[in-house]
Amino acid sequence: MRGPAHASDGRTPREVARGLLWASPWLVGFAIFTAVPAVLSLWFSLTDYSLLERPVFVGLANYRELAADPVVRAATRNTLAYAAMAVVGGTALSLVLAPLLERGLRGSGLVRAIVFAPTLAPPASAAMVWLWLYNPGDGPLARGLRAVGASSPNFLGDARWALPSLAFMGLWSVGSAVVVYSAAIRGVPRAVYEAAEVDGAGPVSRWWHVTIPGIAPAVLFNVVMAVIWSLQLFAAPLIMTRGGPALSTHTVSMSVYLNAFVYGRMGYACALAWVQLLITLALTILVLALARRAVVYRAG
């Protein structure tokens, strides 16, 4: 016997209405807080809007200005460079850490807990902690380097070091990727490892030929998420460097925020936000396309 919920495959108006009613909290919220702002944002991106006066339609002028804006260019360059460093560094680190944690070594549980913990720290607090660690005067890193006789770079005060320093800080919250990879590794059949061992594969070879292909879907999922997140870099540079020195850590999200809420250029900010969304989308598609080619390559 099928329950009432299945009585007619849910096609009757009554059943559809009931379903919509139950889904309505999220549907209404989606309409108010996502769909309407998205439409408004698209409209504002075609206007000159200072928040004090009514928006004035200007066509694609904002988009044309964006293409020539040196600050936006620097911000885009920095954001892409940060994403490249953060995604590559974070993926490499978590692909080494996760298998290490899954070897059943002494203390694995504790280390796993410690590695995950920083992902829960408030980003604003993490920014304060690393501002202190990177402090060139009496910050722990500078003192540590001086103690071993090395000279400490001015991590956040030197335009060559500032962005890599933020990317290095980003590695601290790699724990969520590690957890996903750990779960995926547990799903790789033991027999594959045993077969590889019989074939004389060493630990590194097993890692490369068994573990990595075995968890490829999880890697792809995480790389996509890491790309999306790293392209939004905001709190750390805003709090720690204000985008400096010399625009070297100015990011796209910061430009959106500053234009909308500090310079009073809402239309321009909305246009930039759409460009940011398109860049994110394009890079996500690129990653998926590369992944497909990699799968074909490995299989063939």
Binding site: A38, S41, F44, Q232, Y257, A269, C270, A273, Q276
Partner: peptide
């Protein structure tokens, strides 16, 4: 959808 994209509207 990245959160910051919609924060202005």
């Amino acid at each position: 959808i990245p959160g910051p994209v919609l924060v202005a509207p």
